[in-house]
């Protein structure tokens, strides 16, 4: 299995390490070409203008993408600038796996924010910086459906999932709010599963181990 980690900014290195730890190959994705999409519109059909275009098209397309935590407004701005919003849309439509954590969850979800335009790829309303200032970041154990023991969840300027549609499965809650959800091929976590040595959330999402 090959998984791309959106590497515009934020915790992409730690996610890539978590993937390697569970035996998944990880590649950093900064533009659609890094995911084997030659055309920034997110299509694999491209005109080959140069040897580089051919090389790009020959790159394997990852089986899924991780959208890590970082500064949500910066990621949204840069993602659109480099055409990654279209890449994510193409992945969602093709049924490939998308896993957004923290800022990544804000980007994939629904919501109205001053500086971020969520892609609405999953039927869940995600509110930014909902716990308050960054000194209000915290660590708490959560129970996750499918895992026997609690998972130590690290919440860093975390968003809150306010509302989920009928097709969304809630796999974990904290203080009555969903913190890990799934709708078909799209998973969201408001916490940072990559920041602990425990790899069970990555194993669950990618179905390995």
């Amino acid at each position: 299995m090959l998984v791309g980690v959106i590497a515009l900014q934020g915790d992409y290195g730690t996610h890539a390490q978590a993937l390697r730890d569970i035996g998944v190959e990880a590649v950093e994705v900064r533009k659609p070409a890094d995911a084997g999409f030659a055309d920034p519109s997110g299509s694999r059909e491209a005109s080959f203008k140069s040897a580089r275009d051919v090389q790009t098209a020959l790159r394997p397309a990852p089986d899924g993408l991780v959208i890590p935590g970082g500064e949500s407004s910066t990621m949204d701005l840069l993602g659109r600038r480099y055409g990654l919003d279209k890449l994510l849309g193409a992945y969602a439509a093709s049924g490939k796996l998308l896993f957004g954590t923290c800022a990544g969850a804000i980007w994939l979800g629904r919501g109205h924010h001053h500086k971020v335009t969520p892609l609405g790829l999953i039927d869940a309303e995600v509110e930014r910086n909902a716990y308050g200032r960054q000194v209000d970041s915290f660590i708490a154990p959560i129970d996750i459906d499918g895992l026997d023991e609690p998972f130590e969840a690290v919440f860093i300027r975390a968003p809150i999932i306010r509302d989920v549609g009928p097709g969304v499965e809630v796999l974990a809650e904290h203080n009555g709010q969903p913190v890990l959800i799934r709708q078909n091929n799209i998973w969201l976590a408001t916490f940072h599963p990559e920041r602990v040595d425990d790899r069970r959330v990555h194993q669950l999402v990618f179905g390995v181990g």
Partner: peptide, 14 residues
């Protein structure tokens, strides 16, 4: 300290 380093890590690549 873990949370503070986590906050700093969110700025990586920026």
């Amino acid at each position: 300290f873990e949370v503070k380093v986590g906050l700093a890590d969110m700025l990586r690549g920026g």
